[in-house]
């Protein structure tokens, strides 16, 4: 009788351990996520996921390709470059705040700052750079900040996204918070980010064609036809929340930065293609 109990306990423990370890690390999460989408879209080359809906819908792709001769964000990128290179009142420029003078670094953002214990997005770093140099911060969602961010992204085109979650409990907590946000249903319509972009990519939701999770942040900032201008990733987060009748959170809030951290980590290895266009 005792032997039987011992065997049962051991069996239970053996079954429970793999369950507890499943998805225990961000890298395991990412691998499982990539595998999930590869199985969902076996004919789509992995690198094509950065093109979102254009990788999944031929009609949308043709429209998009026809726009690429004269992309609507070109002027904004040129303005962004000019702003990036124009000295602040103290004579310094944005280049003084970033590694490699801010050129070709988009793929490393967002990162977790283990001293400040927070996720640093590119837009946050741009505004902190301004404040450190005695300038007023820019508004977060569009306009100058989107143009500067777009210019910086353009200098990283083709570089593989390389987000790191350091061996630090706070960094892991930030990643987990972002993951929880992504999978939690919100709003009166009771949708999570995952309801659309994990469970239903490749399908229509009213007039919108849903893109998959992997590759999504690779093309930001984006010029949306709906906006008629460039916008940041947090502008898109707020729009998605609003669509499901959930109160949007402030751009660059801790919640949205953690969400960006998780989401961008899922795209590790895919190339930066931003800025880009979306309907």
């Amino acid at each position: 009788m005792l032997k039987a109990k011992v065997i049962l306990v051991a069996l239970g423990a053996a079954l429970a351990v793999p369950q507890a370890l499943a998805g225990a690390t961000p890298e395991e999460d990412r691998k499982e996520t990539v595998e999930y989408f590869k199985q969902m879209f076996p004919d789509v080359p992995f690198e094509e996921f950065v093109n979102g809906q254009y990788a999944l819908n031929d009609d949308r792709r043709k429209q998009w390709e026809s726009m690429q001769d004269f992309p609507p964000y070109e002027f904004a990128v040129a303005e962004g470059q000019e702003m990036f290179e124009t000295p602040f009142a103290n004579g310094k420029t944005y280049a003084s705040c970033f590694e490699n003078g801010g050129i070709g670094i988009r793929q490393n953002y967002p990162y977790f700052d283990t001293e400040k214990n927070e996720v640093i997005t590119l837009e946050l770093a741009i505004n902190r750079c301004r404040e450190a140099n005695g300038e007023e911060p820019l508004k977060w969602k569009k306009g100058a900040i989107a143009s500067i961010s777009a210019y910086m992204a353009s200098t990283s085109q083709g570089k593989p996204i390389n987000i790191k979650v350091p061996d630090d409990p706070d960094a892991l907590a930030a990643y987990q918070d972002g993951k929880e946000f992504y999978y939690s249903r919100r709003g009166q319509l009771n949708f999570s980010c995952a309801s659309c972009h994990v469970q239903n990519p490749g399908k229509w939701i009213r007039a919108d064609f849903l893109s998959p999770t992997v590759g999504q942040p690779a093309n930001f900032p984006v010029h949306r036809a709906k906006w008629g201008e460039l916008g940041t990733l947090h502008r898109r987060f707020a729009g998605c929340n609003n669509n499901v009748r959930a109160d949007p959170l402030p751009a660059q809030s801790e919640e949205y930065r953690n969400l960006e951290y998780f989401l961008t980590y899922m795209s590790n290895g895919l190339p930066v293609v931003g800025p880009a266009t979306r309907p």
Binding site: E32, K179, R185, S192, Q199
Partner: peptide, 17 residues
């Protein structure tokens, strides 16, 4: 109620959990 329910429910649909 949604907030309370999602505290645990998200884990059941998340990839990697």
């Amino acid at each position: 109620a949604q907030r309370k329910q999602q505290k645990e429910a998200w884990r059941h649909v998340a990839i990697g959990n």
